[in-house]
């Protein structure tokens, strides 16, 4: 396959970036999108050009590192996947592909396609934990009975890998899907009840301080979420938040 790439290049946080055009040949449909980027970078290195910086780690859809906004969509033209799970068979020979970083004021671009998502870490630090010390004295899991439905819902919420696709694709750059998943994974379980009130208040406060937008329930986030986290978590968090406030 021959492809025409239009890629965002930016030297650092303070510089103004711009798009650069690249042509790339000999891409096979079986390559992953990130392998295609590797091929491009090898070519650039041989030409003495600075390779394109992009985030990646596990390359199997579990770490949440890979980002990229491809042809107008977070993680490219498919639903429920990360960019490392996207394959070139989704494109045609001769296609033009626009590759941009995730864009949100709370995700500043560090270099090229790499954005700083530590705002998510700070939200987690504000309350996304339970303070029970379990090291060395772990309880048997079956001593606290939990309804199957609640256990499943908590688990589903806990599958969030914090990739930020929800923010990237939301027209308001809202982080509500991420935060609500991190709140729900505890609030469904008895272990999460002790700190439930402070957790939701503090995490929402931190989210607002980071400058994320407000949710207007467009539902784009749950479509693009690689883990299929449901937008119902957002309504649930709104309920918890209001209850904690009142």
């Amino acid at each position: 396959m021959k492809l025409y790439l239009k890629i965002w290049r930016q030297t650092n946080v303070d510089s103004n970036g711009s798009f650069q055009n690249y042509e790339i040949d000999e891409i096979t449909p079986d390559m992953s999108f990130l392998e295609m980027m590797d091929v491009l970078n090898e070519k650039l290195i041989l030409e003495g050009v600075d390779p394109v910086a992009f985030d990646h780690d596990c390359r199997e859809g579990i770490c949440g590192s890979c980002s990229l906004f491809i042809n107008g969509r977070a993680h490219g033209p498919d639903t429920g996947i990360t960019t490392c799970q996207l394959h070139m068979r989704k494109f045609q020979d001769g296609d033009s592909i626009v590759i941009e970083p995730f864009r949100a004021s709370s995700f500043p671009v560090i270099k090229d396609l790499v954005v700083d998502r530590t705002s998510f870490d700070r939200i987690q630090h504000a309350g996304g934990y339970i303070s029970i010390n379990t090291s060395g004295n772990t309880q048997d899991a079956n001593t606290i009975p939990i309804r199957k439905e609640d256990a499943d819902n908590a688990f589903d919420a806990a599958t969030c890998i914090g990739c930020g696709a929800c923010v990237a694709t939301c027209k308001n750059a809202s982080a509500m899907l991420f935060v609500s998943a991190k709140v729900s994974q505890f609030s469904y379980l008895p272990q999460g009840q002790v700190e439930a009130k402070d957790r939701v208040l503090n995490m929402v406060k931190q989210m607002d301080e980071e400058g994320f937008g407000n949710c207007t329930n467009t539902g784009a986030c749950e479509v693009e979420c690689p883990k299929g986290i449901s937008i119902k978590n957002i309504a649930r968090m709104n309920k918890e938040f209001l209850k904690a406030k009142l």
Binding site: F69, K171, T218
Partner: peptide, 21 residues
């Protein structure tokens, strides 16, 4: 206005229709 501030640099290509009404 508040939500527009949350994304000061807009995407050059944004396919909103692919995932929301």
């Amino acid at each position: 206005i508040l939500n527009a501030k949350s994304r000061k640099n807009n995407y050059s290509k944004f396919s909103g229709g692919s995932n929301s009404s």
